[in-house]
């Protein structure tokens, strides 16, 4: 479980997160949605510790993460995996080296054990033949899958995904969504996904938090979202022509 309690974050005097409190459950896909510039990436980065919050507290299970020192945070970070928008694979390393890096740095496993784990993770994301490829040689979907493999190699308890579907075609997006969903269930991870993709919301959004102008505006499940009477949420969810038609059918 990850919990944010009354967090406030400002940049240069501009409040980006305004008194946000939210709880994300274990073993489920938690989605943060909102318009561009609404503060959802800042919320995600604050939760993961890349931004220090100005006020409030962040809890990882029962541990107050925001008051921990560097050493204690480092210990928790070994339980954290993150998938960045652009993949953030190290350009100078091959896919296998990227996935193996956390094992090299934080475990005393033998080379065989490490390679076995790398092979397993790459197989899990269907990248069996990409071991020796460099990130520049991969397609967008492959980069995301390699990033997922790297994120799960240490068996994380918490998984953060920053717009995992951005720049991908709808079919590849579904593959990535299903992969994240399956991994979440398989390892009972607390997964938090920051997304714009309404298909992800409907498919895997077990808990959805809507951020509007730095405030938590609405929360619920993918079942609740279609029936919400929250105007800002409806404007966001039914912004596309496709969604408007779908809503028309629901109303009928």
């Amino acid at each position: 479980m990850i919990k944010a309690v009354n967090i406030i974050k400002s940049f240069d005097g501009r409040t980006v997160l305004n008194d946000v409190s939210v709880e994300f459950g274990t073993g489920q896909c938690n989605l943060i949605i909102g318009r561009s510039g609404s503060g959802k990436t800042v919320l995600l980065k604050s939760l993961v510790g890349l931004h220090d919050v100005d006020e409030g507290a962040i809890y990882y299970d029962d541990i107050c993460y925001s008051t921990l020192d560097f050493r204690a945070r480092k210990a928790i970070r070994k339980d954290v995996g993150m998938i960045f928008q652009g993949g953030a694979l190290l350009d100078a390393s091959t896919v296998a080296e990227n996935v193996k890096l956390p094992l090299d740095l934080f475990t005393d496993q033998s080379e065989e054990e490490k390679m076995e784990r790398v092979n397993y993770c790459l197989h899990r994301v269907n990248l069996d033949h990409a071991h020796n490829l460099y990130p520049s040689e991969l397609s967008g979907g492959m980069v995301k899958r390699a990033a997922i493999a790297r994120a799960i190699v240490m068996n994380p308890r918490y998984l953060f995904c920053d717009e995992p579907n951005s720049g991908l075609d709808p079919q590849t997006s579904i593959v990535i969504d299903n992969l994240i969903h399956d991994i979440t269930k398989e390892y009972n991870i607390t997964t938090i996904i920051n997304t714009h993709d309404m298909n992800s919301v409907m498919e895997i959004g077990e808990k959805i938090v809507f951020i509007y102008e730095g405030n938590k505006w609405w929360e619920g499940s993918n079942q609740d979202i279609l029936h919400s009477d929250n105007q800002e949420l409806n404007d966001f969810v039914f912004a596309s022509a496709m969604a408007k038609r779908a809503k028309g059918n629901i109303v009928k």
């Binding site: 970070r77 694979l89 740095l105 934080f106 953060f160």
Partner: peptide, 17 residues
Amino acid sequence: GTMRITEQIDALEIMGV
């Protein structure tokens, strides 16, 4: 600098490196 703006450095920090 490129590693910074493409979040590769953030990725290392998240790993605890």
